[in-house]
Every structure is written in structure tokens, then in C-alpha cells.
Design a protein around this nucleic acid. Structure first.
Length: 508
RNA sequence: GGCCCGUUAGCUCAAUUGGCAGAGCAGCUGACUCUUAAUCAGCAGGUUGAAGGUUCGAUUCCUUCACGGGUCACCA
């Protein structure tokens, strides 16, 4: 098995080394050699620029050509060449930075024959810096009239076509750098992601939360019901798990006196890959002492509404065919009521536990025996989730599938937990945290029993966590929000791979 | 993992019933000093994802495999 893999790797490496260059790649290498022979540095150490492309476009677009001529704005601007239009002894080309592009204009009579000839050795994709004066062409396009240019990097491969860009989805993910060069709208998705996360930090920082980092490697994976990745620490000689959630560590911090904490970081779950699941994904978790799940609903509405208003400037998201209104307050529905409403089963049917388990088992294809709680969850996923497009808090979950949540004040079979569903996706999961160490011990034991029966996702017993609770966890509201999915909603992308720069793919 | 779909030039896509694998962009050569999907003339570019099979002949039909997409199942 190992040998087979090794030889396969060697094959691909050899193939890659031997792989023939295309005529276009050879042409580019030849140009590079010619330029080097001319004594031109193609990969300089640094360059003293005066403006970015964005600076020029944002700073001078509003001026007329007359005003620009008067100002005589000298610029030295770097960018990647994305198009070239050669017309005899004049050349127009566009250079781009991550935000926008600007035209440059090179004339033989202006730069001299030498520079002009050198430009024929430039390719689309090269990164150069253009020195010149800003003006507007007859058609009114802001343009840098070049008097010289400097190589910053040579591009040795042809770029994808200029108006279709890179369409091949597999190539876009495997060669994300090319995707980002030629597909400006993809850059915007990741810029949006960055801005969104920055505002999340701002939101919590302003409320007196502190941001913390807790371990990614756990000896007991906890805080969620999921299958972990396993790894090994050589020096300690112990098996470790990549974390499935930071929850138990964050609550230890609340025990320790940090009353408001949050963490934005990666979780790892060893489960299927789909348009809504990447094995590693980014989760925001936050915990606030003296609060319960009702407070967390308020906070969640406030957070997401604030994010939309500040980042997108609207309270309405467009997600595929749907419009999602973030106007507060959002819909709230009890878990069991949602099940009754969307499944079409009569409320009485849900009192028949074996009947429900049988019903749910027929929906699921795997043979793992279902508990009543799991059965309800299966029905929820199958009948309810995808119908909830507008933001909806689904409240009061079965206790069996919520081992870390406090029992409901009204119904001992339920816990104070909600999930926020939007665009048919689960976006957030929160509860009034279970703070009673004895009760927590019991819940863990029930989970361990499920585990014995073959449920790999059940929670392991974490004695150290119970010990932490024994020192006193104040009443606490806690919540996790899937950042990738939130970005999907904000960026109107139906696949999680569109909002993760390097989604996990099978190596080729 | 099951089912469906896709993989053709560097990129985006064609190819009729199984009958010489094409186009646009990009590239190369040349013309052109306000173009902008610049234009014009010419040239080059292919192991049709891989391996097998059927056939006189396979991009096309069949089998297996690889990778990806969609969907279902599990999960956030």
C-alpha cells in the first residue's frame, strides 16, 4: 500500500519534470533570456513606488484631461499586465492590482527606440512598474503616459483568456493563484470574507469580549458530535485529535474568570465533503457569562444585522434565487413545532417514539441504530432545514442530542438550545450552557453508552472538563457560528469551496 | 459511499449517423502613433483524461480506472 503510493508519487514527479513546455512557455523563456542578456534585472529586490493602481483610479478619475495636464501628476505604479494592444509605434496596455486596473500608453517617440523594442519582450502576465504622467485619452479613459518601465517579475506561463477567465472549477481550486489573477470577482469574495471577519472582531471587541486561542490538538476531542482526525505526537508518544470544536476550552476560560471570550479559528471534522462541508472550516465561538440562550438570540440578530449593514450596506441578502431579509426580529419556532409543521406528521405521532425511530430510519441509508433524539434530527434535516430560507431560530432541542446544553425550564426532555437556519443552511448553534458538573457527568455517561453501541460521533467522557465545572461555571450563554457559510450568504455563493481559498481536494 | 454528468490546443468552447479533430482568445511573423473584445494579412499549435475492447475506421459505442461537478446519505 505504502510502496504503491510512493511509486505513484515518483511517477508524477518524473512526469512533471519531463513534461514538455508548450510553445508559449518556450517563447516566454526565450524572451526572459533575451532580457537577461540585455542586462535587465527581471526579479529585482525592491522598488520605490509612488502610487498603486487603485490610488491612481480613485485619486484622479474625477479630473478632466485639462486639469490633469495642469497638475502633471508623476507616478511610478506597479501592476500585472492584463492586456496589450499594440499599434505600430504605440502600445496601449492595462496593468492591474488586486482591486482595479488602469491603462498605460507607450509611444516610441516618447520613450525612445530601445525601450520600445524592449516592450516587445513583455508578455501578458508580467509584473512591471510604469513611470509616467497621468492623463485622459480622447475617449476619456484615465491613462498613464509612460516614459519608462521596470520589470518586477516575469510570468513564464500564458494566462487564461481575457473575457472568459478561468472557468474550469477544478483548476480554479487547484491553481487558486491563477483564479485570483484573472477572475476579479473571486478576489472580491475573499476581500469580503476578510472585511466580514474584521467586523466580527470589532463587534465583540466593542462589547468587552477578549479574543483567545485555544488548542487545536486535543487528547479528548469534545464540544461537538463529530468524527475527529487523529494524529500522533512523537516526543510524548501520544495520540492526539485535531479539534472538532473549541467549546470546552472556552468554557474553562469562563470558569477562570474571563466572562466574555470569543475565538475565530479552524475546526476539523473527519466527515463527508459537500457544497456545505469542508473538512477544515472556520468557526466563531463566543461565550458570555450571566446570559442564556435568549440573550444569545438577541446578540446573534444584532451581530449579523450589523455585519450586513456595515459590510454590504443593506438589510437584505441575495442568495441564489432567494432574497433574505435580515430585518429584526427574526422568526422563532420550537424544534418540535417545526418538525410537525414541515413533516406533515401529526403531533401525536411524535409521542410514539419507536414509530418515529422507524420513520427516520427509513429516511436514512446508514444502518446505525437511531436514538429518539437522533431520529428527530434526521427528520429535521430531511424535512425542515432546506425550507428555512429567512433567518429562523429553531429552539429547544431534544436533550439526547445536546449533551452540553442546560435542560429547559419548561420541559425536562428539552434543552435550551437553538440553531439559526438561513438560506436552508445551519449557520449557528447555541445554548444556555450546562453548568452543573454532576448533570454533565451523567450526560457524558449517556454519550459513552451511545459510543459503545457504535456511534462514533458521540461525546467522549472528559473528566478534566467536569473537574473544571466543579470549580463553578457561572450561568453562560454560548454560541458557534460557521464563518464559511456566513460568507456564502454574504457573497452569494452556493458552494463552500467558493469562499475557502484552498478547499481540500484529492491530490492529483 | 450510491446515482447522474463532465474531462478535446495554454484558455473558452465546437465537431451532424462511428468517416480527414475546428473556431475565438492567447502565441509567432509582418502592417499600423488615441487603442480598448483594437484592426488587417500570414504561420504554428492536438497521444481528444488513462488503459483496454468492439470496428475497415472511435472525440463519438462498450468496460475499467483517475480527477472534478451535481445530487442523495452523514455532518456545521
Amino acid at each position: 500500500m505504502v510502496d504503491k503510493k510512493d511509486s505513484a508519487n515518483k511517477m508524477t514527479l518524473n512526469e512533471e519534470m519531463k513534461s514538455e513546455k508548450s510553445d508559449q512557455e518556450i517563447a516566454r523563456e526565450n524572451k526572459m533570456e533575451k532580457l537577461s542578456r540585455e542586462g535587465i534585472e527581471l526579479f529585482p529586490h525592491r522598488v520605490e513606488i509612488t502610487h498603486s493602481v487603485f490610488d491612481i483610479v480613485s485619486g484622479f478619475s474625477s479630473f478632466s484631461n485639462e486639469e490633469l495636464e495642469e497638475k502633471k501628476v508623476d507616478v511610478f505604479v506597479p501592476g500585472r499586465i492584463i492586456s496589450i494592444r499594440k499599434m505600430g509605434r504605440a502600445i496601449f496596455f492595462h496593468i492591474a492590482d488586486s482591486r482595479t486596473k488602469v491603462q498605460a500608453y507607450l509611444r516610441e517617440d516618447k520613450v525612445g527606440k530601445k525601450y520600445f523594442t524592449l516592450f516587445s519582450l513583455i508578455d501578458i502576465g508580467d509584473i512591471i512598474a510604469v513611470k509616467g504622467i497621468v492623463f485622459k485619452t480622447r475617449t476619456g479613459e484615465l491613462t498613464v503616459l509612460a516614459d519608462s518601465f521596470t520589470f518586477l517579475a516575469k510570468c513564464l506561463h500564458p494566462l487564461p483568456e481575457k473575457w472568459h477567465g478561468l472557468q474550469d472549477i477544478e483548476l480554479r481550486y487547484r491553481k487558486r493563484h491563477i483564479d485570483l489573477i484573472v477572475n476579479p470577482e473571486e478576489r472580491e469574495v475573499f476581500r469580503l470574507r476578510s472585511t466580514l471577519i474584521a467586523h466580527i472582531r470589532k463587534f465583540f471587541d466593542q462589547r468587552g469580549y477578549i479574543e483567545v486561542e485555544t488548542p487545536m490538538m486535543h487528547s479528548i476531542p469534545g464540544g461537538a458530535l463529530a468524527k475527529p482526525f487523529k494524529t500522533f505526537h512523537n516526543a510524548l508518544g501520544i495520540e492526539l485529535y485535531l479539534r472538532i470544536a473549541p467549546e470546552l476550552y472556552l468554557k474553562r476560560l469562563t470558569v477562570g474568570g474571563f466572562e466574555k471570550v470569543y475565538e475565530i479559528n479552524r475546526n476539523f471534522r473527519n466527515e463527508g465533503i459537500s457544497s456545505e462541508h469542508n473538512p477544515e472550516f472556520t468557526m466563531l465561538e463566543f461565550y458570555e457569562a450571566y446570559k442564556d440562550y435568549n440573550d444569545m438570540m438577541e446578540l446573534t440578530e444584532e451581530l449579523i444585522n450589523y455585519l450586513s449593514l456595515t459590510v454590504l450596506g443593506t438589510e437584505e441578502l441575495t442568495f441564489g434565487e432567494e432574497k433574505i431579509s435580515l430585518k429584526r426580529p427574526w422568526k422563532r419556532i420550537k424544534f418540535i413545532e417545526a418538525l410537525v409543521y414541515y413533516s406533515g406528521l401529526s403531533p401525536r405521532k411524535f409521542d410514539d417514539k419507536t414509530g418515529i425511530i422507524e420513520f427516520a430510519s427509513n429516511l436514512a441509508s446508514n444502518k446505525v441504530p437511531l436514538s429518539y433524539g437522533k431520529a428527530l434530527d434526521v427528520i429535521f434535516d430531511k424535512y425542515v432545514k432546506h425550507n428555512l430560507i429567512q433567518p429562523t431560530f429553531v429552539m429547544d432541542y431534544p436533550r439526547e442530542i445536546s449533551p452540553l446544553a442546560k435542560t429547559s425550564r419548561e420541559n425536562p426532555e428539552e434543552v435550551e438550545r437553538f440553531e439559526l437556519v438561513m438560506g436552508g443552511m445551519e449557520i449557528a448553534n447555541a445554548f444556555s450552557e450546562l453548568t452543573d458538573p454532576k448533570e454533565q457527568g451523567k450526560r457524558f455517561k449517556q454519550q459513552a453508552a451511545e459510543r459503545e453501541k457504535g456511534d462514533e460521533e458521540s461525546h467522549m467522557i472528559d473528566a478534566d472538563y467536569i473537574n473544571a465545572l466543579e470549580y463553578g461555571l457561572p450561568p453562560t450563554g454560548g454560541e458557534g457560528i460557521g464563518i464559511d457559510r456566513l460568507v456564502m450568504l454574504f457573497a452569494n455563493r452556493k458552494s463552500i469551496r467558493e469562499v475557502i481559498l484552498f478547499p481540500l481536494l484529492r491530490p492529483k
